[in-house]
Write a protein that binds this DNA or RNA. Structure first.
Lengths: 328, 328
DNA sequence: AATCAAATTGTAATCGATTACATATTTGAA
DNA sequence: TTCAAATATGTAATCGATTACAATTTGATT
């Protein structure tokens, strides 16, 4: 791989002139310009990002932190992030932490070292203390999961309200025994969705029964399968379930299909409107978040921060999508 | 962010000594070492990857190219890649090309510019010509999709054989009318799976009927839904379907569920064994690829290439997983 | 032809690290 | 005490770009 020196020599000019052609900045005579351009083509030259970034302290690369890519929830958000980034001349790198905080370090260092210009974190398992430290000096945005009263700008939806509406929908269908499948309450979204669940129950004077609330250890399908099995072991079985994630809801649906073949079905509502949710049988009623939009706006926020501007937190509108799982 | 100069000044030593402490290489007296370590802690210093990479021509970062992360097929492979990379002191960056070749350029440049040490491409839509050029000078491995008789080392499964076995399974169940849902045949895996499909039909003296072969424009569920609708419009309907991807198979299953409520079901076999395939109703018979293993070995191949070693192509074993979709 | 401003090009410092080589210091055997 | 060997540290070049400033060329004007 040729470097700027070799181009300069080949074109018979100084490296400064080559650099000028590269950045088509100040005046370069047409003759020299074309000599340099020829040399660049002949040697198949690409400027080194390393040299350039070192000098400019800018990489035009954005990091996107996510726990793992197996949850389809992230897919559409990432599309939004990517499209917006590219439209502004940036590129993104997806960083999967696998919920292992030690893996975050390398990515945080990339930002500190100007290998990346900023971070969008969608990782609920992120080490918030470290992220806060990073955010003191570098551009960081939280997307979806956030910190209440924290310093880092965020974009999200109103999880409490959405959960409230989901459960209210179940109650209005005549369900007085609504179970909750949720994850670890160290995550804000889990706490908020539980609060919404409880608010709906209270509003209709229904009891909150701990045995109808199941906490999973993760969001993969099989946790939902298992959660529903446990819930069905109650003597007094729930007639409906609200799951804080579509993946869990789909697992629950699977258990219901398997264990309750011909009996009265149990109504299910999920959260996220992942693409699978319209492929299940029955199709899944769920809360739809504007995921693409969320990705776009998160990126705009980050780009603003990179420019040094301040940004406001954003709470986007959600929508209850009613499908077969609450219709039979 | 402090730099090495400031550490040197603070510790009252030269930058060379600081660098020595950092790389705990040649001799540094215990006294100086601890002075430097103190300074590093006090100033919260992290060495710049930019400076270091520029000097060392090494980043210990690997790029993973994929068309998009929405196909869960990639998830497990990436886990394998990531675990193996980390075990060897490397980190990975996921690069989603969205099947837009212009997006590849930035990633290829990262390699040329030593911002990354190598590439694992899982992108069937990649510009092979450019990738071949890159591979002439930099470490590149193909994973899953590959080029027959190409120069780039690859790891994959025997798609032709797997498809043959899948279709044979359907035929043995008594299906004489087996349809194929496949994608664009510009992809090698699509061509190979079609060949396997045809081999099985021929072996049982069944006709290959073009109207039972549907080409989709992508792999998302809805393409499968649509493909199955089209296939059902045949006067002479197929009694079984082999889809070259689980996502397509699941879409097909959806259409079958919707349109053929009570009539004789159509048997379906997919390909990939994505986690959702055991959540559908009926659960999906499919070909399982050793995805985690594939990721691990792809990474080992790449690390060997980075060390300058030669590697052999690898064809891993697959397995037919029989589930409900071929049992009723 | 002489003059001078504008346009073009070159020189050299800089970004933050690593490392060959040079120099200084310590150690220990004679 | 002396001096060579071993150990410790510093100096300066280097990686590949950008850019302030200096130097040169151009060409219009008198």
């Amino acid at each position: 791989m040729a470097n700027i020196q070799q181009i300069a020599k080949r074109a018979g000019v100084s490296i400064a002139t080559v650099s000028r052609v590269l950045n088509n900045a100040t005046s370069v005579s047409p003759k020299t310009r074309s000599k340099v351009e020829d040399a660049i083509k002949e040697l198949n030259y690409e400027p080194s990002m390393l040299g350039r970034n070192l000098r400019n302290s800018e990489s035009r690369l954005l990091l996107v932190l996510l726990p793992n890519i197996s949850n389809p929830f992230y897919t559409e958000i990432i599309n939004g992030i990517q499209d917006t980034a590219i439209a502004s001349g940036y590129h993104i790198l997806l960083c999967e932490t696998d919920s292992k905080p030690e893996r975050e370090n390398i990515y945080f260092n990339m930002v500190k070292n100007k290998l990346a210009d900023g971070v969008i974190s969608m990782d609920p398992t992120v080490n918030m203390q470290k992220l806060n430290e990073l955010a003191e000096h570098y551009p960081v945005i939280l997307c979806s999961e956030y910190e209440e009263n924290g310093e880092i700008p965020y974009i999200t939806v109103d999880s409490e309200l959405a959960a409230y509406q989901a459960v209210k929908h179940l109650i209005k269908l005549g369900n007085e025994k609504v179970a909750l499948i949720t994850s670890d309450e160290k995550f804000l979204y889990a706490r908020l969705r539980r609060t919404g669940y409880e608010r709906a129950l209270k509003e209709y004077n229904l009891p909150i029964r701990e045995e109808w609330i199941y906490h999973t250890k993760g969001l993969d399908f099989h946790y939902g399968v298992h959660a529903m099995r446990m819930l069905l072991q109650n003597e007094d079985r729930p007639t409906a379930v609200f799951a804080i994630s579509d993946t869990l809801a789909i697992g629950a649906l699977k258990t219901i299909n398997m264990e309750l073949k011909d009996s009265e079905p149990i109504a299910v509502v999920g959260f996220d409107n992942i693409s699978f949710s319209s492929m299940t049988n029955p199709t899944l009623t769920t809360i739809s978040q504007p995921m693409y939009m969320m990705g776009c706006q998160a990126t705009e926020m980050l780009l603003s921060r990179i420019k040094g501007e301040n940004v406001e937190n954003i709470v986007l509108e959600h929508e209850l999508i009613i499908r077969e799982s609450t219709m039979e």
